[in-house]
Every structure is written in C-alpha cells, then in structure tokens.
Design a protein around this nucleic acid. Structure first.
Lengths: 223, 223
DNA sequence: CGCGCCGTTGATATTATTCAAGACCAGTGG
DNA sequence: CCACTGGTCTTGAATAATATCAACGGCGCG
C-alpha cells in the first residue's frame, strides 16, 4: 500500500507525521456512496481495499463514469477547486477507505517536501490520466476503446501484484460503456467479438486475456 | 491578470516573493510550440497575452486538442507527474508567456500558504475541466458539443472583460473538431445549421451569439 | 496572379445506437 | 426444492448519427 500511495519515499521520521494525518477509516458496502456530487469537500480518500467508480454528473442528469479506482488510488481530487465534489464515488464491492483531511494534508505538505511532491504527483497524474481518456473518447473507435480499457486494467492489476491476464470485472456492461462513451449493447457485442476472435475469453464478468499483443495492435487502427 | 492567476488573494508582502518566481517571459509567434510532447518538464506557464492550444498525442500519432488556453490560464500541469510533458502547447496567435520554474514554485508554496492553496486550486480545476470534457465527449451529441464549446468560450471571454457574444475564433474547424471529437466537416455543417436556425451568426472565424438561451436549451437534448 | 490552406456542401458509407426479445443468474420466498 | 423476480447480459434488425469521399469556392499571401 505504502509503495503506491502518498507516503511513497518518505523517511521514517516524516512517516510518523503522516501517520497522524489519516483521519479515519470508512467501510463501504457495494453500492454505498463515499461522497455525492454537491457534498462539501473536506478530504481526499485513499482506497485501501476494494474498488469504486467515480461519476460526473451533467446538469440535465446525464451521468458518466469518469474513473474506476482500486487499491492505492487517491480520489476526490476534483473537489479541491470547487469546495464541492463535482462527482460521485460509489463502491463497486465491499471497500475500505482512508480519509485524508485536506487542510491537514496541506499543512503537512508545507512541512514535508516529499509529501508535497507526492501530492503534486497525484494531482498531475490524474490530469494525464484524464487527457488519455479524452483521447480515447474523442478519437478512438469502439473496438479500440475497449482494448485500451482492458489493457489498462491488466496493467493496473499487474502493478498491484495480481494476475494481469485473468481478472473479474467489478463493473456492469453499462458502467463500462458509460466510461468508454458507448452503450451497453455495444460493449457486450465487442466482448463477444473479441471472444470469437480469440483475443479474450469472457464469461460474464470473468475475463481472461488470451492475446494481449493482438489487443495492442488493435489500437491505432482508425476507422 | 493578477485576479485570474496564481497570485490571487496574496498580500503585498507575499506578492513580492512571488514576483521573484517568474523566471522569464517567452514570446511566441503563431504556430510556435511552447513545449512538445516528450520535453523535460521544468516549469509551468502562465498565459499573459494571446492564446494556445494543447494537444495530447497517442502512440500511433493520433493527436487531439485537449485544451484552448487564454489570458491567465496556467498550462503544463500535466507534466509534473511524469517529468516529461505528455502533450504539446502551440500558439494560435502571437502570444506571451510567463515561465514559472516549478521547483521554485514548490519551495515558495511551502512558505506561502495562499500560494500553495492557489496552486492546488489550479490543479484541481484542471481536473474538473477535464471531467467536463470527458462528459462532453462521452455522452453528448455533436450539436450539444458545439453549443457547450461556444457557451464556454463566451463565458471565458466575459470573465476577461471581453464581449461574450461576439468573438473571433483562433482555431480552425479542424482544431475545434479535434477538441470536440468531431470531424471538421461536421463542425462546419453545425456552424451552418446554427446560423440557419438563427442561433448564431458566423462568417469564417467571426462568431456572434444571437440566442445564447436557445444554445443552452440545446444542451441536454439527447439523441 | 497563382498557390495553398481553409471552409462549405453534397452524396454515400460506416459505425454505433435504438428498439426489441429472450437467456442467464443469483437471491427470495413459498 | 422450485418457481419467481429483478437485474444483467446477449443478440438481431432497423435506424440514426457522424464519417468519408469528393468537388468547389474563397481568402490571404508571396
């Protein structure tokens, strides 16, 4: 956990300080909201166990999954600027969260340069991540989008020490579609097609990547 | 400028410190790159005059306009996490930039809480902005996208004291399309349609909003 | 004046959505 | 134990939205 999260690279002394930061732990059941759009922003949250989706809401009620978050991810970063959360975070399974009160985090960041650096890294990476999703949504075909999604997921599991070729999706087809700017039927069809083509094996939410190289090749083949 | 930018809300004393931060000024001509994808990250940049587009690059060479930036905007935020700029910034007209060396900015932010706060605000707002673009790209129809784009532009001009109803686009149809996930022909057709429908007046890049309310209504009407 | 880039518009093709029906699956209560 | 239910997933056929291809007009600049 430490390796992935904010305290990365801190010495023992600083670490002690950071330990005082963690306000509390929260346990969520599947479907519980960690925060909702419009809630006052007070804290960032680190995922300790389980996974969540975050969704952006449009004024007209439209909703889009903006991210899928697992162990070590920091969420709530978009709330800093607006004092209100602009999106919603909902647990996809039983999940545990560390609450990081943001004012204390800012105070501590002034005292501990490495922590400041890490905070900036996380903020900036979120921006890069979002840019990549924009690229995906704006210029990729449906097929490519799903391939990117699967490979990205595989990579994140790998980094956390899980199998990168075999995993169980925590999202429904609809949630995946919402994240990728596609309809659930399209996602379903693509899974079937990938399966037929021998790229993956799919049974409901259980996915096995059979030919990651071919999935990678798929990306970059414009319509 | 100060109102919009990082030093917002600082007292005179702190302001003096911040003044020492600005490393240098850069002048760009139309088409010049402020930085390119892959360049080492060292500084953030504040737009003093003119405008730029930033573009994300995919591995396969695909390119997408990720943002359009004007007076007071801070760009380069995505480079912090990766040590390399993940995107490219190109001037759309003659443009002047303040260079803000990031290490010094971090040092100063530890000393000046309000500056730290502002930096976090900018980072977080960029995230919110990106989430909104994701929503646009993932769930809006072409028509809605252009309406959002125009209204957003109008709002930004308004805040800067320019006319919010009459302005000259600095981007080509292709660049607008790239930003909105559309082809240039589609953008052109939409401009024509909005014109026919009396929503806007358009002549090349000169745009006049005739009925902003109707444009707003347009948003939220799903396919 | 001529060249190149930009923008417009039409006809056609493609892609993804919509609508619709049914299968599957887990949990629930009889 | 089984039928029932609601949510999820799959698949097909028809449809709508946007992309592609292509031609041309205009404008600015050397």
């Amino acid at each position: 956990m430490r390796e992935l999260c904010l305290p990365f690279g801190l010495n023992a002394e600083d670490m002690q300080q950071v330990d005082t930061l963690v306000g509390s732990r929260v346990k969520l059941k599947k479907g519980d909201a960690l925060y909702r759009a419009g809630d006052a922003f007070q804290s960032l949250y680190a995922v300790r166990l389980g996974s969540l989706k975050t969704t952006v809401l449009a004024e007209d009620g439209r909703e889009q999954v903006s991210g899928y978050h697992m162990l070590g991810d920091i969420i709530g970063l978009d709330g800093i600027g607006t004092e209100r959360h602009g999106c919603q975070a909902v647990a996809l399974e039983d999940t545990e969260i560390c609450v990081l009160p943001f004012e204390r985090l800012e105070d501590l960041a002034r005292a501990v340069p490495q922590l400041q650096r890490n905070l900036h890294l996380f903020l900036s990476r979120e921006i890069s991540r979002d840019h990549n999703i924009m690229l995906l949504l704006g210029s990729m075909r449906a097929e490519e989008r799903l391939a990117v999604f699967l490979l990205n997921l595989a990579d994140r599991y790998r980094r956390r020490g899980y199998s990168s070729t075999e995993f169980v999706l925590r999202m429904t087809r609809e949630e995946i579609g919402s994240h990728l700017g596609l309809k659930l039927e399209t996602v379903s069809r693509l899974f079937s097609r990938f399966h037929e083509d021998g790229l993956i094996q799919v049974q409901g939410r259980a996915v096995k990547l059979l030919n990651a190289a071919a999935l990678k090749e798929l990306i970059g083949q414009h319509g």
